[in-house]
Design a protein around this nucleic acid. Structure first.
Length: 273
DNA sequence: ACTTCTCCCTGTGGGC
DNA sequence: TGCCCACAGGGAGAAG
């Protein structure tokens, strides 16, 4: 569920509360939350200072005082909650860390998310190096990304979800961007004109910016900021989840289809490109 | 080399 | 009331 805007909300909250804080005791309560590590987080983190909190796409990481990173991926249901020690009592609490008088709790119902200690290479964690820049980054070049998209023999939606082409976009914002740009999700990416592909990337950025202003998209209590509060962008969705609702542009009902196994919502009348 | 499928996991909700 | 199944989702790695 969390895509770029939701992860950015979490990043800002973590930065506000934790930059300059030092890890004390760390407790891993579910091994899947710490998978992929060749060191024990309980051993390596205590004593390290959080110097920065950064993000690319849906990947989040702490820059640590030893020059390494702690990569955090929320996947579908991960939450990073900052509070007083012992405050979080969820049965889905997977990792908890003391940092001075605060506690950082990683809660994750489906255990797809993880924390991973990794070296930094040119300011990017080694395990994130295959992820393309996201549309909020200064180095993001829509014309260049559009050209890469147009070499793909896959559906447009599949390409928008490919984090090695453009990162941060998930099913919700892909559907919203395609609705805004009038692009059919099942169209082959290679069939798009350059200007339409660029427009689609610009709409992706715009819709994610608007969502960020609303605190992100939430359907239930699974996506929350570091204080446990939900965002409001679900009220503004034009396509995602709107099956049988009238299209805000033309009034025709929004339909649902599957693209490579993922649900996609769109308007058959105004998405034809 | 490129594209698509499978799997990891839990909770929810619809159908019977 | 309860059982069963489909579904939701990101991305690694396997299979096509």
């Amino acid at each position: 569920m969390p895509e770029l805007p939701e992860v950015e909300v979490v990043r800002r909250g973590l930065a506000d509360h934790l930059i300059g804080a030092t890890f004390d005791e760390v407790e891993v309560l579910h091994p899947r939350a710490a998978r992929g590590n060749d060191v024990r987080l309980e051993d390596i983190l205590p004593g390290l200072v959080i110097n920065d909190v950064r993000r690319r796409g849906k990947y989040l990481w702490f820059v640590l005082s030893d020059g390494f990173a702690l990569v955090i991926h929320l996947r579908m249901s991960g939450q990073m909650l900052v509070g007083k020690p012992g405050e979080v009592t969820s049965k889905h609490l997977r990792i908890r860390a003391q940092l001075g008088d605060r506690e950082l709790a990683f809660v994750d119902q489906r255990t797809f998310g993880y924390w991973q200690y990794a070296p930094l290479m040119d300011d990017i964690p080694a395990t994130v190096s295959h992820i393309a820049p996201d549309p909020f980054e200064g180095e993001f070049d829509a014309a260049e990304v559009a050209r890469r998209m147009r070499k793909k023999n896959s559906a447009v939606k599949t390409v928008l979800l490919d984090q090695s082409i453009v990162s941060g976009i998930g099913s919700i914002y892909a559907d919203e961007a395609m609705w805004a740009a009038g692009v059919l999700p099942t169209r082959k990416a290679k069939a798009l004109r350059q200007r339409d592909a660029v427009r689609l990337l610009e709409e992706s950025r715009e819709v994610m910016l608007r969502a960020l202003e609303q605190g992100g998209t939430s359907f239930d209590a699974l996506y929350v900021n570091v204080n446990g509060a939900s965002g409001y962008f679900s009220r503004s969705l034009n396509a995602y989840g709107q099956v049988d609702q009238p299209c805000a542009r033309c009034g025709q009902p929004i339909v649902r289809t599957k693209v490579n196994g993922r649900s996609s919502y769109f308007c058959q009348n105004c998405q034809k490109l």
